[in-house]
């Protein structure tokens, strides 16, 4: 894959955005997240192997929000779990996923090869903050938001007891969680506030990378907009945000760039304005997916995604593609210039 420029992204980190000070210099050229040849294979019973994520290359800069979209079962959630080291035991991961904290002298850390101890002490919460899929289920119902947030602050920063209260309130403020609701239990919060509480916990460790796995599933439209606007705010504050979602409307609202995944591979990466506006997606699958929206033609992509265990040779989309030619069924299209299609 040709090196993609990582500078000159739509947003640059706001110098005063991070209330904890130490604003990252906007000149750090290294991406926050850099995936190279990321592959996840599940070993199944009977010796079968299922490649759920296949040779992914991706860069994500500070202050940038990237939406990873695709049909259910395309491997996008597996990719997110791989970054956090939360895959089941039968998964084999290869490739590299370097996470870099901008403005720090430490070398980028490969989270794929890091041992569990490193993941627990240095990665989860500190390098990668997870914004959970269902915040209500993510919070303990029997403890107040304050006590859960305080525990996270103490775990990640070792804050002494005397300063814990102030530090907790600062942490809540960063996710715009109202301080007068800190003593509430999760079931007393509205969906939006529960989302903010969970986001506040994700932000405590000052992770340069926020990972949101289907943050809008099952929410009503107002709450979807509210949730993605919060994520946008954190991107504008200088964090790198990776949103894994099937919700194209939410992606359009929040993302700087869109990556479309199909059968374990990224088939297109495009700036959001050109993807959702003119000239539109270039890969036929991305085009079909976007056109399936009720606000567009509402026509589904014909057929169903292929079995990951039995991918066709050549382009995985060829059996469903109106533009497929003989070449498509024999040769896997290389990812060049933002898309992986012989005809784009």
């Amino acid at each position: 894959m040709s090196p993609r420029p990582v500078t000159g992204q739509p947003t640059t980190p706001g110098p005063a955005a991070d209330t904890r000070g130490d604003p990252s210099p906007p000149t750090d050229p290294r991406p926050v997240l850099s995936l190279r040849h990321l592959t996840v294979t599940f070993r199944m019973r009977g010796g079968r192997a299922v490649r759920a994520v296949n040779d992914i290359d991706l860069d994500l800069a500070a202050g940038e929000c990237l939406a990873l979209v695709g049909e259910s079962g395309c491997g996008k959630s597996v990719l997110a779990s791989a970054l956090l080291g939360l895959l089941p035991g039968n998964a084999v991961v290869s490739g590299t996923a370097l996470v870099h904290s901008p403005g720090t002298p430490t070398a980028p850390l490969d989270v794929l090869s890091a041992p569990e101890k490193t993941l627990a002490t240095r990665v989860r919460g500190r390098l990668i903050g997870l914004v959970p899929q269902s915040p209500a289920a993510h919070l303990t119902p029997v403890r107040t938001v304050r006590s859960q947030l305080a525990e996270t602050v103490r775990e990640l920063h070792g804050t002494p007891r005397a300063e814990l209260r102030a530090a907790t309130e600062r942490a809540a403020a960063r996710a715009a969680f109202p301080p007068d609701h800190l003593d509430h239990y999760p079931h007393q919060l509205s969906g939006g506030l529960a989302q903010r509480a969970a986001t506040a916990a994700a932000l405590v460790g000052d992770a340069p990378l926020l990972l949101a796995d289907e943050p809008t599933t099952g929410l009503d439209r107002d709450l979807v907009e509210h949730t993605v606007d919060e994520l946008r705010r954190h991107a504008d504050a200088g964090r790198a945000v990776l949103i894994v979602t099937h919700d194209l409307v939410a992606a359009e609202r929040v993302a700087d760039r869109v990556a479309v995944m199909y059968a374990g591979r990224i088939v297109e990466i495009a700036p959001a304005p050109s993807f959702f506006g003119e000239p539109g997606p270039r890969h036929p699958y991305a085009h079909g997916l976007l056109q399936a929206l009720p606000s567009r033609t509402f026509v589904p992509v014909p057929g169903m995604p292929p079995e990951l265990s039995r991918l066709p040779t050549g382009c995985a989309f060829a059996p469903r593609c109106g533009r497929a030619t003989a070449q498509c069924t024999t040769t896997l299209p290389a990812f060049t210039d933002g898309t992986a299609c012989h005809h784009a």
């Binding site: 049909e71 599933t217 099937h246 194209l248 997916l289 399936a292 026509v299 589904p300």
Partner: peptide, 17 residues
């Protein structure tokens, strides 16, 4: 009842179809 709210655009369109 919210038949498609967990699903992607293409599957939504296919089920509604």
């Amino acid at each position: 009842d919210e038949m498609t709210s967990m699903l992607d655009a293409s599957t939504t369109a296919a089920l509604v179809g």
